[in-house]
Nucleic acid binder design. Structure first.
Lengths: 321, 321
DNA sequence: CCGCGATGTGCAATCGTTTACATAGTTGCC
DNA sequence: GGCAACTATGTAAACGATTGCACATCGCGG
């Protein structure tokens, strides 16, 4: 190929990467040879030479989760615009293959959406890491997220404002940082509003619809059951309402339900779900920008948590007692 | 690192990749040096030398779409087990950067979920390609999918069996192969059952909830409106039902609705959606296996379409007239 | 004691680029 | 006309592994 154009490989390389550094006649000859041979630059070789991967890795627990799709799309969009590929890894499925990920030269940076990883593994990574949504207390990693405690308080306040006094809680998986923060927000708001925190009103879930449906049965069987439910996720809220419907109980007639996340379906559910909106695309975008800026500047991304605003969206699943 | 252990780099390489080919004493020394220096194998260099990328690329239109998440997760799972990474690309967002993707040495194969790409671009790729769900008539590429025509017929038959005679259609985006196949299935079944195909009953959508909601208004305004709706996607069905609810019309009381895809929310919608189940995880898994088998054997994946079974799931959104 | 196969290592080429440096022309200025 | 400053190109050394081949060592049978 270089021979065909009668030049050295160095000139071919220059022609392709910095055309202005090469003579017009040569450039034309090279371009013609490129077209003739269907030559393609081997990006892997270039990346090796330049010691960069031109790729970032997105590490999330359970990729099948709807919640992540918007974030993934936003990340891919920002990364693509910067000429970086996005590699996907499921931190649950691949849990034992995670060690080399951040130091095998095939990624320039990591977007970590799972706060439950072994800190030692993360510490072993040599590339910059930015966390999204979740965080890890053990490591002072930069993180882009929302104020889960305050946001959960918004939902509880809304229910309290509607006159509900017995408010139940469907939490997330124990051990998860989001679960903890949202539970804390629930408890704090209940206390602040002087509402009773009854043990039987604290149900534990795992963010899924199935867990919400399961909670519905427990709730229905509770004596003096709560008149409103605050959920740690939209999916569990939807599962709860759906199961209530099957039991002949209607939302919001028999129970008010507030969710958390504002996934796409919440707006179109029947009833439309009152929930706390999470700016998922913005979270993904911001985190990706942060990481990419760090890669380009060579400096580590600014540590500390960066909070994007979330807000309560009142729809039809909640009403006054 | 090699010096520290007092051996050549060749021996280090062998120790790490084929430990049995190296003496026990040497192995121990190398391992110790590895541990001491925190040495990490540079996968990029190995990949270059071995002329493989150890990665496959998943190319889908609109990654934010819920429909894909299950497929992506399944692909990632299979690929991960085979030691391959998964790279994500949005074929819409990245449409102008698609050329080099299949021939720049950074991917070993492509899983293509978008049948709307320029065939010339796809033809230019040098790595094996397996299509999933969608297909391209212009290229004889291998494809893993379902029988959309027959499956759509199942839904129409079900509505007809319930006694519906005026059945409306909410299609997908024009030009999409799935839209076309499902529309064909609808038309064929209607004809077969001797039901009228009225122009005003053919609504066009784009698979989204918003388009379903929009269609609801058109449908409601139709004189002698249809008593049942067949939709080309679950999302549009959900959007339709939701918008009906807002207009004071209830499903299935005022209209029966059948969807297509069986996304996770359909089962939990109120009413639960009658729909055609697509084995999304199986599609992703099978396609990934096919591609990986081709990579390992060196032979191109078997051409032709591979059909996985889909079935009708009857739930609460349809009932007899 | 010699030769042969098996075993364990090192040498050096290789993968396909990029890039620091050297070199050969060209131009311009005094 | 000579020297400096450019410009355009080639040479060759990286990048960091893998791997074919050569070589040394060892054990063993004849």
């Amino acid at each position: 190929m270089a021979r065909l154009a009668g030049v050295s490989t160095a000139t071919v390389s220059r022609t392709l990467s910095r055309p202005e550094k090469v003579g017009a006649a040569t450039r034309a000859r090279v371009m013609q040879a490129v077209a003739a041979t269907g030559y393609r630059l081997n990006a892997a070789a270039r990346d090796l030479r330049q010691r960069r991967a031109r790729a970032i890795t997105l590490l999330a627990p359970n990729l099948a989760n709807t919640y992540f799709s918007r974030i993934v799309a936003a990340v891919q969009e920002v990364a693509g615009a910067a000429g970086l590929r996005v590699q996907l890894l499921d931190s649950q499925v691949e849990s034992d293959r995670l060690g080399p990920v951040g130091s095998d030269g095939r990624t320039d940076g990591i977007l970590l959406l799972d706060g439950g990883l072994d800190p030692e593994i993360v510490r072993g990574w040599t590339v910059p890491v930015v966390m999204v949504c979740e965080w890890m207390d053990a490591l002072g990693l930069p993180c882009v997220g929302t104020d889960n405690v305050a946001a959960m308080g918004l939902a509880v306040d809304h229910l309290a404002d509607l006159g509900h006094r017995r408010i139940a809680w469907i939490g997330g998986p124990p051990g998860n940082v989001l679960s903890a923060a949202r539970a804390e927000g629930f408890t704090a708001a209940m206390t602040r509003r002087g509402l009773p925190l009854r043990d039987r009103d604290r149900l534990t879930g795992d963010f899924t619809m199935a867990s919400g449906a399961c909670a519905a049965h427990l709730w229905a069987a509770t004596p003096e059951r709560a008149t409103a439910i605050a959920c740690a996720s939209d999916e569990s809220a939807l599962g709860f309402i759906s199961e209530c419907d099957r039991m002949g109980l209607a939302c919001p007639r028999d129970v008010s339900v507030a969710g958390f996340d504002d996934i796409d379906f919440s707006e179109r559910f029947i009833p439309p779900l009152t929930t706390v909106h999470q700016p998922r695309a913005a979270l993904g975008r911001r985190a990706a920008e942060q990481l990419i800026a760090a890669l380009e500047s060579g400096e580590p991304p600014p540590a500390g948590r960066q909070i994007l605003p979330s807000r309560l969206v009142v729809r039809g699943s909640t009403r006054a007692v």
